[in-house]
């Protein structure tokens, strides 16, 4: 096993141990992740039903249920929150011990991200089932869509994690970074299709969302899983764009990291 892999698994074991210490808190975070798509579903399905044909942009109640059910799962599995974390680490000086280790701190952050997702599975899976039972989503997913959808979730998670971390690096210049976290979260809500399916947005917004990475973290995997993307070539093109954005994010991380570390001055004395 390579040094990075060994360290990563050690961080993962530690991360899970920490999460288990804070069972109550992580359950509350997980509930917040469930409430979000549930509320969006309630709003959009009510709006659709008030229309004469019972649909908005081709989404009926059952499709909205399927979309937000898929988004509930995708949103949980691809989320990242380092824009909220790193500012605190820099401000408090807790970043210093991490920088003294012979491994990039991003590996510990990635292990922390995964450990939250692993630990909360025992809680969120039953909740997902309950939500599905309540809203009866209309799925039309074939095996290839599900298979590619799972790959898209993994790629979306990697993309969101790396890009979020790149934005978080701004903390090395401006340690009070809470607003950056909010800005990033807002972008995920709107451009990622978490607030509304992108097809329900005005043309110009939909076009703009295609230029940004957020769609490929959330909307694309969700639409694939619910069976809305029917053309395999479109699915493969989406996976390719995800990979391209991941490559851009990694290049961005590598370029910014060394500059950010140079910039880091901690709390000097």
């Amino acid at each position: 096993m390579t040094a990075v892999a060994r360290s990563f698994f050690a961080f993962l074991r530690k991360g899970i141990a920490v999460m288990l210490q804070y069972r109550g808190e992580i359950v509350l975070w997980a509930i917040w992740g469930l409430v979000n798509p549930a509320v969006s579903y309630a709003l959009w399905s009510a709006a659709a039903e008030s229309n004469a044909d019972g649909t908005i942009a081709g989404f009926g109640r059952g499709e909205f249920a399927a979309y937000f059910f898929a988004m509930m799962i995708v949103g949980h599995l691809t989320q990242a929150w380092d824009t909220y974390e790193i500012g605190h680490l820099v401000r408090s000086g807790e970043m210093s011990p991490k920088l003294l280790r012979p491994i990039l701190p991003i590996w510990e952050a990635l292990a922390g991200n995964l450990s939250y997702k692993i630990t909360t599975l025992a809680f969120v899976v039953p909740m997902w089932c309950l939500f599905a039972w309540l809203v009866r989503p209309t799925f039309d997913t074939s095996a290839w869509q599900l298979g590619l959808g799972l790959i898209a979730i993994v790629l979306g998670a990697v993309l969101n994690f790396v890009l979020n971390y790149v934005f978080a690096l701004v903390a090395f210049w401006t340690p009070k970074l809470d607003a950056m976290g909010e800005l990033y979260f807002g972008a995920c809500m709107l451009w990622g299709g978490r607030f509304a399916p992108l097809d329900a947005l005005p043309d110009i917004l939909r076009w703009l969302s295609g230029l940004q990475p957020f769609k490929w973290m959330f909307a694309f995997p969700s639409e694939l899983i619910m069976g809305r993307i029917t053309d395999p070539s479109e699915a493969f093109r989406g996976l390719g764009i995800q990979l391209a954005w991941i490559a851009v994010s990694i290049v961005g991380f590598r370029a910014l990291w060394s500059v950010a570390v140079k910039r880091y001055t901690a709390v000097s004395g």
Binding site: A10, K14, S96, P97
Partner: peptide, 29 residues
């Protein structure tokens, strides 16, 4: 090398020291 900062902790606050030691052992191979 090692740098010990009396006012900064490199240990995981919520876990027993042994857990942090094991992470350290993995990171430093």
């Amino acid at each position: 090398i090692s740098m010990l900062m009396g006012q900064r902790s490199q240990l995981q606050w919520d876990l027993p020291a042994l857990d942090s030691f094991m992470v350290h052992a993995a990171v430093y191979n």
